[in-house]
Design a protein around this nucleic acid. Structure first.
Lengths: 70, 70
DNA sequence: AACAAATGTAAACTATAATTTACATATAGA
DNA sequence: TCTATATGTAAATTATAGTTTACATTTGTT
């Protein structure tokens, strides 16, 4: 999955640490998600989207590869 | 988190097993999600929404309790 | 140069999503 | 009644999300 968290942070001039605090996760969690090390849980995805006042569908995007068998 | 998977299945006349097969998970996974035993991953949430041709934001809803510290 | 703030990285650990197998119950149709 | 289909449930296991601690690198500022 792709996400636009880094872009939205830039748009809102918000650091990884500031975003992390707002959604109650660690700074490393935000970093790992931005780097694509893993995809956040649905609850966390919704929380992050709400901080930026956008929809989850605007923040994340499914990719072809997500449909392939694991 | 709340979800409307059962409602959308009914609207589309689709069994748990049929939905499970479309998104490549087991029938028990769909069942557990509908029963609220756990919240699906973001990737799975997007796949399910796409099967019903709706947005993730229309299929899931954050609740107050999701913001409380775990 | 020196300092602070932001970001990058990694390893070990904990919590939870998802699988697998197996069985129980409910319901509709032949 | 017998059978097929859909749903409910549970225990044990595997995969991955998220934490914690600790340190390195980058970037802007004085």
């Amino acid at each position: 999955m792709k996400n636009l968290i880094k872009v939205e942070r830039a748009r809102n001039d918000m650091s990884q640490a500031a975003l992390a605090e707002k959604v109650n996760v660690t700074r490393q969690t935000i970093h790992a998600i931005e780097k694509g090390r893993f995809v956040p849980s649905t609850a966390l995805a919704f929380k992050i989207a709400s901080i930026f006042n956008i929809k989850v569908d605007e923040l994340f995007e499914l990719e072809e590869s997500d449909w392939k068998a694991n």
